[in-house]
Simulated scan of single mutants.
Amino acid sequence: MAVDPRDPRLAPFRAPLEAHEGALSPFAARESTSAGRERSEPPDPLRMAYQLDRDRIIHTRAFRRLKHKTQVFVHPDSDHVVTRMTHTIEVQQVARTIARALNLNEDLTEAIGWGHDLGHTPFGHAGEETLAQLIPEGFRHNEQSLRIVERLENDGRGLNLTAETREGILKHSKTRESVAAEAWGVADTLEGQIVKLADSIAYLNHDIQDAVRAGLLAEATLPRVVHQVLGTTHSARIDTLVTDCVLASTATFETDRPAIRLGAEVLEATDTLREFLFQRVYLDESTLREARRGQEVVEALYEYYVAHPDRIAGWSLADDPPWRRAADYVSGMTDGYAVRRAQALGFVAGFAMTERA
């Protein structure tokens, strides 16, 4: 028998949680000042609002599928290449470290971190670019992440997350210009801003490791300014970026515009590293060659399900137009499931890829 959340025996457990939030920085997000949920809910006796958001995200089907989705390298058979799931774990770890150091709300950073990439397609950004070209309204993974938590999960009811978590998920993306580029705007909460930067800290560093393993780079080939400013090892670079973020952000807390940021020198070196990875990894012909095979699968499946919406097996809303249903269904697939569906429908004869150690 379920316990009534109003059971007076539960009352003592709530007070310490509220006291903990009350002791956070004056710049921290709090349940007491939250813009709330689309559908009002009574307070949970054992969890604050952002803890509840986090738990709801972790228990979704979309979250579980991240372990079989590409980060950069399209290769489902390697045990060592970063997946969308391991990337997400690293993002929330970096975000929580920064949030704790700044005495901000770790629960909110964790919720946003777990949910920020739920909307990624199979085959990483290659699949995203394909759907963006095919879909009438375009396609962006951050917008799809928001759609998942607002509409697709729970058979169309969504997760009913707080406004702060939903905003952080939407606004985590940035443009190629800079890790500080605004793109979809700046999150109102510092916790949302943390996740946006933590996303870059995580992927820039683990993508170096994957690229070295793939034979596209060697540590010695990284730009000199990256070694001089950020460090010569994976751990040193992450430590530099996290520490610099804490120091640079703390300095803004004494102004009328507190923000999460990097110092000028570290930001310049980070953007140099990002552009270097675009040229040497993300746009490298061997990377693109594998990605194009994934794009062919995504395009074939999308066009098939637009023409045959009656064959969409879940993960879409029946009242939506065929293009929207196909976009939701195909973007939600894992790499392996997309390949198997394409093979079953006769679109690809095989999908063997060069093994990466």
Rank of each mutant, 00 (worst) to 15 (best):
K67N: 06
V149N: 00
E129S: 14
L134C: 09
G294V: 11
G113I: 09
R100S: 14
F63M: 14
E128R: 00
L216W: 04
E164T: 08
V246I: 15
E285H: 07
A15T: 12
R274V: 04
R54W: 10
P309S: 13
V298P: 03
R324K: 15
D107P: 12
G36N: 10
H206S: 08
G22R: 14
Q295F: 02
P136V: 13
Q295D: 03
F63C: 09
K174S: 11
D155A: 15
I260S: 00
A251W: 03
D310R: 15
M353E: 07
I135H: 15
V82A: 13
Q295N: 06
E191C: 07
R14N: 09
L24F: 02
G332D: 04
P321C: 09
T88V: 14
D44G: 07
A352T: 10
K174M: 05
A291L: 02
L170Q: 01
E296P: 00
T109M: 04
Q193A: 10
E18S: 12
E191N: 04
E38P: 06
S32F: 06
D44K: 02
P136Y: 06
A181S: 15
T270N: 02
E268W: 04
A35Q: 14
S173W: 01
D239H: 09
D239P: 02
T86H: 09
E128Q: 15
L273W: 03
L317V: 08
A132L: 10
A269L: 03
I169N: 01
D207K: 06
W323E: 15
L241W: 06
E153P: 11
R151K: 13
F13W: 13
A101P: 02
A11Y: 10
F253K: 06
V81W: 00
T232H: 13
T233R: 10
L118H: 02
S32Y: 03
V330C: 14
R261K: 15
S145M: 05
V266Q: 13
I201K: 02
V339F: 00
G127V: 08
E177K: 14
R325Q: 15
A198C: 10
Q92S: 11
T334M: 05
Y337S: 12
A327N: 05
L283T: 09
T60P: 02
N205G: 06
D117E: 09
D44A: 14
S178Y: 01
D4E: 09
A2T: 01
D319N: 15
L273V: 01
V298N: 05
F139T: 11
D107I: 03
L273F: 03
D244E: 11
S316Y: 03
L17A: 08
R56F: 10
A183I: 05
L146F: 01
W114R: 02
L52Q: 03
H80A: 13
R54I: 02
A19N: 04
G36H: 07
V242E: 07
R257D: 04
A211C: 03
R147Y: 11
H20K: 14
E128V: 09
V91W: 06
H141G: 04
H59V: 06
H308R: 14
N160W: 09
A326V: 02
P258M: 07
Q228T: 11
A236N: 07
D256Q: 13
N105K: 00
M333A: 11
H308N: 15
T121G: 11
A29S: 15
R213G: 05
H116N: 03
I135D: 10
T121E: 08
S78E: 03
Q51F: 07
A344M: 04
T60S: 08
P26H: 05
A248F: 03
V246H: 04
H125N: 09
